[in-house]
Design a protein around this nucleic acid. Structure first.
Lengths: 339, 339
DNA sequence: GTGAAAGCGCTAACAA
DNA sequence: TTGTTAGCGCTTTCAC
């Protein structure tokens, strides 16, 4: 049976016939090989235009020596989340400059979605993967790397797997943020953060504690809350912690969703101007709030650029051992930390 | 020369050899064909696992009868913009359910980027394109459709090209939003919107005028500002319009960036609680503001679902004439419109 | 139920 | 500079 779609796209063969040359010469023109007679180039281009021929890259990649598809896979928490989509855009720009397209997928922090997406992308023979990993065990990727797949991890390092990784200076920046509050005279500083299963949360919490220690402030466990997955937990925490005389004078919120909860809690109790707040991660509307929220933001463009470069180097055959890059954050005081 | 990558992925041939059968039977197993001896299926699966074989979809698609790649292209204003990325996520979910992957690209409202991306995606032989179009002329897509490409437009219709389109009820919803303000007693209602070259801006402005007319309120040109591309223009407008006795008592902002500018302008002059504001499009932080901003938001999930269904129907061969869908918006009063 | 042979649209190799 | 032939990894055809 003939193919049932009527797509009827012309092939290189028809272009060759119309321009009176061989398919190989057409292929040369398509690939910009310089050693073709200029008149022939003209003829081929004319035929291409006349037939509305479109080069089929998937067919070409099959036989091509380097076996590349010029596609990379990008695994994100959720393409619609602000951090993910900003990273996506920055990587898209890097990729486009190298002639690559990007296939992105959302994992929603589910390890099985991560594995499924990686599998799907490998079946499409992407040349490499940039991954903002879930908390899963990544040992299973070892055999993929042996088969030639390239990996770069962003935001969090992989588990039980060594690969190029780009992370923010989480611990150091948490020290700075906490120290900023201490310098304003705060001694009772609450910590609110993500689950301690998550790398960034662990690092940022360590930075918070380290800053307290350095300043000679005793660590008070009652001022600490981990895990936003449990939303009620956070409400109970803010409810109890923000009541009474003994409440903290400042909060360090170590992740953007947590910062939002902190804003909500302070706002509901009319404490926005009484309790200082510094958050980690960007909030797109920080400047619209009263008072503005002081934030430690990741330099997403820089992280994307480094990650993309690492990946393209691997794709081009670089064999050196895995690199870990720590990218400095940007601190923007906006009043909420200076109360 | 042998291929220089050491990717050395096993092929269907090696799986056949190891499992003691032919490549055709391996192909049957890979494609879930039921008429294969169960023992043979087991043997093949064992060989696949042992070799860490990964089915190469790009090779298979080349010969496959329907010629499909199970990939769709998504052309957005900017993958990192909230509307675009929410649409992206909703379409990703629809696509995944159908076994499709999504390649997205950002156009930044540039017609030449649109054409480049479409060209790149066609070279990858995507099965269809979902496009949030720029203001360009889309007549050039006619020959692509003749060659079998499928198109669905979202948010704005194409120009000089007839294709399935999914838009919000822009005009009707603008009437509702403006009428909402009128019902609160407002008579001097300013309009701030995007360039009138953009379909949604035209429709929303028409809705604004229509609501005024219906209520017997004279249209006052001095209360209207088009075009946010010129940021200084908007500042001059708010500067002059918000000064003095004769200022509007309410503003209808017809796009999210414009709404942000309106918030900024009102906030800077401490008018947030004196001038009512209703905005079109979502603002992710609307509920955090004081007063909360009343918004008309597009039902992005519904739009994505309809767009994806239209596209998949076309990909599956549906030949009926182009459909235009208008999707109702969601109005969320949050105080700013009830001043 | 199974497999040999042909061929999808292209590029590599090599000869002309 | 150009063209012929083989073949990328897979699915189709069709005979067994």
């Amino acid at each position: 049976m003939k193919r049932d779609n009527n797509s009827q796209r012309p092939t290189i063969r028809e272009v060759a016939a119309l321009s009176g040359t061989s398919i190989k010469t057409v292929s040369r023109v398509l690939n910009g090989v310089q050693t073709v007679n200029p008149a022939m180039v003209k003829a081929v281009e004319k035929a291409i235009k006349h037939l509305n021929y479109r080069h089929n890259l998937t067919a070409g990649n099959l036989r091509r020596m380097d076996g590349r598809t010029n596609t990379i896979g990008l695994l994100l928490k959720d393409v619609s989340n602000p951090f993910s989509s900003a990273l996506h855009r920055a990587i898209e720009d890097q990729a486009r400059a190298e002639g690559f397209d990007v296939i992105a997928g959302s994992m929603d922090e589910k390890p099985e979605r991560e594995a499924d997406l990686i599998s799907a992308f490998i079946s499409r023979r992407v040349d490499g993967l940039i991954i903002v990993p879930t908390t899963s065990d990544h040992k299973y990727l070892e055999k993929e790397r042996k088969s030639g797949m390239n990996f770069v991890f962003v935001d969090r390092p992989p588990n039980n797997f060594v690969a190029d990784t780009v992370v923010a200076t989480n611990r150091k920046s948490a020290v700075e943020a906490t120290t900023h509050l201490i310098k304003q005279g705060h001694k009772r500083i609450a910590y609110m953060g993500d689950s301690q299963e998550i790398y960034t949360a662990v690092e940022r919490f360590a930075g918070y504690k380290s800053a307290l220690t350095k300043a000679g402030i005793a660590f008070d466990k009652s001022l600490v809350h981990h895990g936003i997955d449990n939303k009620r937990g956070i409400e109970e925490f803010t409810e109890s912690i923000l009541q009474g005389e003994n409440r903290p004078t400042a909060i360090f919120a170590s992740q953007n969703f947590v910062t939002m909860e902190a804003i909500r809690a302070l706002s509901a109790r009319r404490l926005s101007k009484k309790v200082a707040l510094v958050g980690f991660d960007d909030l797109p509307f920080a400047e619209f709030l009263e008072p503005g929220i002081s934030l430690v933001t990741q330099d997403i463009s820089a992280m994307a650029a480094i990650a993309a470069n690492l990946l393209f180097d691997r794709i081009k055959g670089k064999k050196s051992k895995a690199e870990i890059h720590e990218v400095p954050t940007i601190f923007t005081p906006r009043g909420s930390g200076e109360l």
